[in-house]
Each structure stands twice: as C-alpha cells, then as structure tokens.
Design a binder for these strands. Structure first.
Length: 219
DNA sequence: TCGCTGATCATCT
DNA sequence: GATGATCAGCGAA
C-alpha cells in the first residue's frame, strides 16, 4: 500500500492548535505511519497518549524554555523527541497556540502493517503485543530519535505521518504513568479494552495517592 | 501477570 | 552531582 492509497485525512496544524487535553484523547484511534528507507510503509493505530502543559509540574517546560524543550512551545504539529533515563526516546507532538508550552506524548500503538519492519527494529523474538507498547518501544520500533525533534509533522514529507481514518474507539481516562509530580492528574487517555496499552506503573518517586498539593486545573 | 532491579546519559541545578 | 514522561529480564505466584 502506498501513501496515496491510505484512507483518511492527515491531521492539520489547525487540528493540533487546540489544548493538549483536547488533542490527547482525539489522538487515540489515529493512524501513525512511517515510511521505511526502502519505501514501504509501517502503520499502527495510536491506543494511548498523555497530555502535558507548561502549568503542569511534571512537564519539561514547567520551569520555562530551554534548548531541549523549545519544540514544546510550538508551532503546533511539531515533534518534540527527548531522551529518557539515558536509554530511550519519547515522541511528543506540540499542541496549543504557538508560543505556549503544550504537548501530547504518544505512549503506545497497535501495529497494523509492516510488522516485519517493526520486528527488525525491536528484535525478531518480540511479541506483536510488545512491538509498540510503551513510549520507548514505540520510538525504537519506528526508528524515531533525537534527530527528529522539532520536525514539522504537518509538512509535505514528515518523518511520521498522522492520519484520521474515522476510527473512534471508546476512551478511558486516568492518571499518567511514571511521573513523579502531579501523578494523580487524569491526563492519560487510552483505548478501552486494548491489549496494546502499556501497563500502568506509578512512579516510585511519586507521593502517595491523593496527597498531591496541586490539583489538575479546571478538570 | 506482577514486582523488583540495574542500565545509562542528557539536561539542569 | 542528582535526576528521570523507561525497559528487559528475572523469579514468584
């Protein structure tokens, strides 16, 4: 299947120029596509996302703009890729108005096409369920790394294509995974019943549930 | 399937 | 110098 054969419409910059809490659930069910160097396509359906904003103590941009987090400030629709634990990469998409720090982390996806390509990246023995289950696994399988930060995903030939084919899975909302601050904010969204959603793990550094002093604003 | 542990380094204080 | 928006591998249940 070529890009021209793909059903649905690519997500526009205007689509991303909304609040992260609106974009994050809307991204669940969206197609995530990556063209290999050989010209074949890998396709997956996003099943899990998390929202981050500058008001949020766990957001990288909470303390202001730095060289690393600059892509989070926009323009919307640009990638923010960062290294975590010195080992893995995480892929975000900037959202909200240009100049405001907001983004959505892509945490997990269900592989649809090009499974052999994903296995080549992740290891031949990797179970299908684990190919894209988790933000670090997702970037490894799709060969996304720091070279892609600040890339415009709404451009003509982006490294990663986001496409809406009309799928509207039921969405579950809950606390985010692995964050040590604002751990109780229900800013994680995932497809109900999906086997490809990452396992929920509260950060070992997070305070006990219910003790966060900051409450999620307006939610 | 769950819980635990070490790996490993860019970024920021 | 401390700290993670994580993962693989292991043993236990």
């Amino acid at each position: 299947m070529s890009e021209a054969d793909a059903a649905g419409t690519r997500l526009s910059r205007a689509w991303f120029a909304r609040h992260a809490l609106e974009v994050a659930p809307a991204l669940v069910g969206v197609l995530l596509e990556r063209r290999t160097p050989e010209g074949t396509w890998v396709r997956a359906r996003i099943v899990e996302t998390e929202a981050y904003t500058g008001d949020d103590p766990s957001c990288h941009a909470h303390r202001g703009r730095t060289a690393r987090n600059a892509p989070l400030f926009g323009p919307p629709g640009h990638a923010y890729v960062y290294r975590v634990y010195g080992v893995h990469w995480c892929l975000n998409v900037a959202t909200g108005p240009d100049g405001e720090a907001q983004g959505v982390l892509l945490r997990a996806a269900e592989p649809l096409e090009g499974l052999e390509v994903l296995r080549a990246q992740r290891g031949a023995r990797t179970r299908d369920r684990d190919l894209l289950r988790g933000p670090g696994r997702l970037t490894q399988a799709l060969a996304v790394d720091g070279d892609h930060t600040a890339a415009d995903l709404c451009a003509d030939d982006p490294p990663v294509v986001l496409r809406d084919d009309g799928a509207r899975p039921a969405i579950v909302r809950g606390p985010r995974v692995g964050v040590s601050r604002a751990a109780d904010w229900p800013w994680r969204f995932h497809a109900e019943g999906s086997r490809f959603v990452s396992r929920y793990a509260r950060s070992p550094h997070a305070p006990p549930p219910g003790t966060d002093r900051d409450r999620a604003p307006g939610q």
